[in-house]
Structures are given as structure tokens and as C-alpha cells.
Design a protein around this nucleic acid. Structure first.
Lengths: 340, 340
DNA sequence: ATGAAAGCGCTAACAA
DNA sequence: TTGTTAGCGCTTTCAT
């Protein structure tokens, strides 16, 4: 006989039933607010619940109900993410808001290592969630494969490279980049360069393609400098490089606001006035855009809307509606401010 | 008879048993890598698992095992959080790393509305997690009460105001603020002000108290301006106010790096050179601190370490070790850079 | 080494 | 209106 701390066993539906002098079926009905319970039973059970301190075990309920009212939100590569990418937070919040309205619990899972990948895969197939939202999926991701295998309703934010026909939400990076570049051209700049970033992701590659589209014959690859990540510091160094190579540059499209902010620092350090000497535009319309001086002209990325749309897609699938396989592209208005 | 998509029922342990011609007990043993299984059974079962595409239902297993190998991480008030507070991301990552090493799944729950509070409370009491890490808890939070009621192992990051004896990890805001202010005094400044923030949280109040401690008799409340949140924009306006009121100010302690960055903008706009005319120091050592020019002297807040310590506390409690009720305070070295 | 059976906490169909 | 019972998918004695 052990004398370890008895660790207070949690009250179950049976304890409530015993206390109230009814069967567990009746208790279950009260808990789930069903009809056909006498007033006496009702109050006896409510009293018993309070007395024994009963709290329902949702996990057990889920097992029999075969649904969890929970949706996972999987985030990859977060190390720099939250610091440098203000979008991801907004996407999360958007998804959470929509799921919350439908009374679904969003559970966020972070994938930061090989081990995490394994564990998260197990979690997704383990019966804890009814669906999953995945942001920044990589090509041939084990998580994606598990999701496919078990047919878990899924929605991707951004288009995973290797999957042609899956539900996703995103923006048209290419045409957005083209639009803002055209706007920049319209301001009369003649030597327009670009700081491209993250060319290994389709967002990065597409933004460069859009830039190229807009410039047409006037495209000059000497005016393009590319950096690996959407980072402030990368913007600084790339702009320095560009200035050295092409001192007469008078317009810049930076692949993200953070990059643009860095570039603006470098421009100012080089004695160039913005927008007089050089006009600059960014991409994202994140908090960066309002912190620069002058404020940044940029492409508005509807981050919260992406989260909401992804959540709505999941919710629709759970209602049995066929997902929109082609994907959903959200509008990205150009926001014109002081930097160009 | 319905012709709806049959929605492919998931294979269970029973399907595997049937396919392999053994009992479910034996299958269970194989899945859990126990001894006493014949080589034939072993391989027959492995083949059957592959054939029927079996994936274990962890939720069902948890029900009988009475443990989930999962820990919740609850975040409040995220609206601005991810944009303005780079710490929270680092705390998460630290917690995730430590939990992951112990093969625990961290599930992040966002509380962004009254409704979320309800749902998250249910989730925590619903048998999905073995413990919980709570950041920025509010006083008399319903979530905190649920956690107490069911005796769920918990660790707080930062000290919740209304609970005297709970396990928490944090930093000593007061003595840290005192230290950096003393360093600032030592640079020979004679009119030192402070931009205080978030005085309704203990972090904010304690930083002001530390400032006061350092200044002693020389403390002058005309040199203190306070703002509601740790925000860049608040730093701008507070600094403008301070300059107007006390033009001869030559030193500033800002309650956070974001605030300091804002203040530096205002100082520069007012034509003051940093650190020649006025020295300024911040708090957090977040990404802000390296983006300012000159870079910011500040107090290093070990955000990742806080997450790791909180996770370690939970893990310890789950091992049955008594939690350190007094709380764990981490070191906060002063980082001296160019701004003062 | 393995099968049979009890049971984790709960819901739901069926009787009564 | 209520009690009884059969599971949800899994682990774990207890026999054998």
C-alpha cells in the first residue's frame, strides 16, 4: 500500500451521478443541455456537479463523438520568424478569430527541428484535431504527407511547391509586384532597381518576375541585387552594393518592407534624399511601413485576411463542402505613401 | 443506403490484429516496443500495419494512460504582441526546445477574446495536456483559477499579481533598472529622465522603482514621463514631451528598447546628437537594440532562457519534484553599446 | 509468448 | 423522462 500523495483523482460523470442519485446517462444529458430532463434531476445534478467539482473530460468525449472542435495551426522555421516577419502573427490572429467564432479551438504547433516534425506529425494523426492550417510548408514535407495520407482537412497559406491540387490561400505576388513597379515607373524614375529576396521561395521569385514584367525591355540585371532573407540588415547591405554599382539609381523596389527600411537607412547614410533623389517602395504593408521616414509606399498584404480565409476553408471542409482546389487569391492593393 | 463519400474509416488496432491473425493485445505490445513477442508475430504485425495504413490514435491512448506528453503554452493579449514584443517569440522557442528534448509536444493557445478565455479554460481542464506555461497572466484570470482548481502543473512567466505562492520564472526588473541607471549616471549625466511604461504591470512599475532607487535624492518627477504600453510610437511622443518640459535633459532611461528607439527618433528630430548631447539606455535587448543608430545600451532580458526555465519547471513537476514556489529569477546583464 | 477481458470517461441508441 | 448498455481506440492485468 503506497502512501504517495493521493494526487486527488478528478471527479467523473459517475461521481456526479452517484452524488445526484441518477444515472450517468441523465448527467450526460444535463451537461450537453439536452431536453427531457426533469427539473428535479436538473437541479440535483447541477448541485452535485458543484459539490464534487466536476469538469468534463473533453478528450474522452471527443473519442466517442469522433470530432474535436479543434484545428491545428502549424508554423515552420520560426527562429527568425516572429522577429522579422510581422505577417505570421497577423495570420495567426486572423485564423484564431474565425475559428473562435465557430467555437473551434486553434492549437498552434511550432516546428523548429527534425524531432518536432516527427512529433507534430504524430499529433496531427493522433486524433486531436479535425483539421490543419499550414503556413510556409516546404516541398516534400513529412507533415504534408501525413496530412494527405489520413485525409485530414487542410488549408495552406501560400502554395506548397510540390502539391498541385490542394486548398490554399495566398496572394498573387507576381502581379502585385508588377503593379507597384508600374506605379513607381509612373513617377518618372529612369533607373529603377530591385532588392530581391528569398528567391528560393515562390513569393520571392514571383516578386522578381513581376518586377521584370513591369520593366519589360528596360529591365537591367545590373540593377538587381538579391539577398537570402526578408531582413532589415540585408536591405542595408544590398542597397550599399547597389549604390556602389549603379550610383545613378533613382528608384528601388524592395522585396519586403523590412528590406526597404534597411535600404532607406543605407540611402540616407549615402546622403540621398527620399523621395527626391530616389523613390523606394516595399511589399507587405507591415508595421515597418509606418516607422520609416518618410512612410513607405508598399503593397498591402492582407495577412489577417489570409488567416481568416484559411480558417474559413477548413470550416467549410468540415461542413462537407468541397474545397476550392484552385486556391483563393486575396486582393493586394497598392498603398501609396511618402517614400516614392 | 447513402452514397456519400464513404469518408474512409481510419484503420484501428483491431484491423491490424485481424490482418495479422493475432489479438489486439499483441499488436499493442508491438506498437509500444515491449518484449515477449515472437519474431513471426512481430513481422506479421509490421506487415499488417503497413498494409492497412495504420496510424495510432494517440488521443485514445492518452485516455487509458492518463497522460498526454503535451504541455500548453498560453499567451494573452497578442494583438500587438507579436509586432511590438519580440520577447514572446523567443520565450516560446525556448519553451518548445526544452519540451521537445523531453519529447513533449508544446501546444500554443492564444487568448484574444472573452470567448477564447472560456474555450481555453475548457481545453486545459479537458484532458489534453499534462501541464501549462502561462505568460502575461492577468490578475484574477479565469484561466488561472481553472488551473488551480484542477491542480494542473503550471509555470508562470512573470509573476501574476494575485497569486503569492506559485511556480514562476522571471527577472528582477527593479534591480536591473537600478543597475543600468547607475551605469548611466556614471557617464557623468546630470539631468537624467525616464520614459516609464506599462505602470499597471509589475514589470513597468518595478522598472520605475529601480530608476528611483538609483537616483535617490536626485530623483525628479518632472523628468519622468509615462506611457501606457511598451511601444515605439509612445517613445516618440513621450520624448517630445520630455524635451519640451526639460530642454536640458542629458540622459534617458526608456522602459523598453522599442520605447527607446522611438525616443531616439524624437531626439534626432530635435537636433540632439546621441550620445554626445544625450545618452539613452533601454531595456530588453531585443532586435530593436541593434537597429538603432548608434546601437542601444540596454538590459539583456534572457527571453529564451525564461521559456526554457518555465518548461523545465513543468517537466520537474511532472516528474513529481516539488516546484520552487518562491520563483526563479534569471540574470539580466547590462549590455553597453553606443547610445550612452 | 499470447489471448481474453476489464476499463479510461464519455455519448447515444434502446428500452422501459 | 430515465436507466441500461454498447461502444470510441487503446493499454494492461490475468490467465494460459
Amino acid at each position: 500500500m503506497s502512501t504517495d500523495r493521493p494526487r486527488q483523482k478528478r471527479a467523473t460523470i459517475i461521481d456526479v451521478a452517484r452524488e445526484a442519485g441518477v444515472s450517468r446517462g441523465t448527467v450526460s444529458r444535463v451537461i450537453n443541455g439536452e431536453r427531457y430532463v426533469s427539473a428535479e434531476s436538473q437541479s440535483a445534478i447541477e448541485a452535485a456537479i458543484a459539490k464534487v467539482g466536476y469538469l468534463p473530460n473533453t478528450a474522452a468525449r471527443n473519442l466517442v463523438m469522433q470530432r474535436t472542435l479543434a484545428v491545428a495551426f502549424v508554423v515552420h522555421e520560426p527562429a527568425s520568424l516572429f522577429a522579422e516577419d510581422p505577417n505570421i502573427g497577423a495570420i495567426m490572429l486572423g485564423a484564431n478569430a474565425t475559428l473562435s467564432d465557430a467555437d473551434y479551438q486553434m492549437v498552434l504547433l511550432i516546428v523548429d527541428s527534425e524531432r518536432d516534425t516527427q512529433r507534430v506529425s504524430r499529433y496531427l494523426s493522433g486524433g486531436f484535431v479535425d483539421g490543419v492550417i499550414i503556413v510556409s510548408a516546404r516541398a516534400y514535407d513529412p507533415i504534408t504527407r501525413v496530412v494527405e495520407k489520413i485525409g485530414l482537412p487542410a488549408a495552406f497559406v501560400g502554395h506548397p511547391p510540390d502539391l498541385p491540387q490542394i486548398p490554399f490561400v495566398g496572394i498573387d505576388n507576381r502581379s502585385s509586384a508588377r503593379s507597384i513597379t508600374e506605379r513607381l515607373i509612373a513617377t518618372g524614375r529612369s533607373r529603377i532597381g530591385m532588392i530581391a529576396a528569398a528567391l528560393d521561395r515562390d513569393s520571392g521569385a514571383d516578386r522578381l518576375a513581376g518586377f521584370r514584367d513591369a520593366l519589360g525591355d528596360r529591365f537591367d540585371e545590373n540593377l538587381v541585387e538579391s539577398v537570402p532573407l526578408y531582413e532589415f540588415s540585408a536591405g542595408v547591405s544590398a542597397m550599399q552594393e547597389l549604390l556602389k554599382r549603379e550610383p545613378d539609381i533613382d528608384g528601388v523596389f524592395a522585396a519586403s518592407d523590412a528590406v526597404a527600411a534597411g535600404a532607406m537607412n543605407a540611402l540616407r547614410a549615402a546622403g540621398r534624399s527620399i523621395p527626391r533623389d530616389v523613390g523606394i517602395v516595399g511589399f507587405d504593408d507591415s508595421t515597418w511601413a509606418l516607422r520609416t521616414k518618410p512612410t513607405l509606399s508598399t503593397v498591402h498584404q492582407p495577412a489577417q485576411g489570409l488567416g481568416e480565409a484559411a480558417a474559413a476553408s477548413i470550416l467549410g471542409q468540415l461542413r462537407g463542402e468541397p474545397p476550392q482546389l484552385g486556391g483563393i487569391l486575396l486582393e493586394t492593393p497598392v498603398v501609396w505613401r511618402g517614400s516614392a
